[in-house]
Amino acid sequence: MKRRDTLKAISLAGFGLAVEPVEAAVPAPPEKKPVIPGGRQPFEAERDAKLKAEKFFTPHELQTVTVLCDIIIPADERSGSASQAGVPAFIEFMMKDQPRNQTPMRGGIRWLDNKCVAMFGKPFVQCTKAQQIQIVDKIAYPEQASKDMTQGVSFFSMMRNFTAAGFFTSQIGIKDLGYVGNTPNDWQGVPDDVLKQYGLSY
């Protein structure tokens, strides 16, 4: 991915922000207090606002995360990519929300850059697409990875899990998955054709 494209992806993620509560159910109170979104306790709303105002990733780190998560979940004929679904912003928030993630993430990016410098003379995001895939192939398959790559495997597994969680809980990802619930319904059991498919009946 070209740097220009990466930056575009980042800004898309910034605007795509499928993470803002869309409903602010409480009418604005007379005095200038922060609005507590529906379903939040005041301490939670304050905490969320504070975390959102903080920055964890450096621009370089955010770029690295963006490239990695689009390698993990790229756009295909059915749906967009992880960064188009706002995954980098979600990962940024989770670093601040659950600080135990910070060292494995920051250190993991650093590990990756060091390996890339040793192998290609450049940090990960500045490598060619082919070089990026070359290093990713060494850390993306836990059962095949060599002994000098195990820390990278742990890092990539963490990235994979964050990316999947972020993508499939976004609007794009939910549509991709085909989840059609979370709406008033009248459950009358498994559809007949599905019952037939599995040889089951009521």
């Binding site: 409903e23 379903g39 929300d97």
Partner: peptide, 22 residues
């Protein structure tokens, strides 16, 4: 009371996608 309702919200309406932090 809408002040308290979380029912029928989507995961992306939570910045942590519903994680159990708080």
């Amino acid at each position: 009371d809408p002040k308290y309702i979380t029912q029928l919200k989507w995961p992306y309406e939570s910045p942590r996608r519903g994680a159990g932090t708080t």
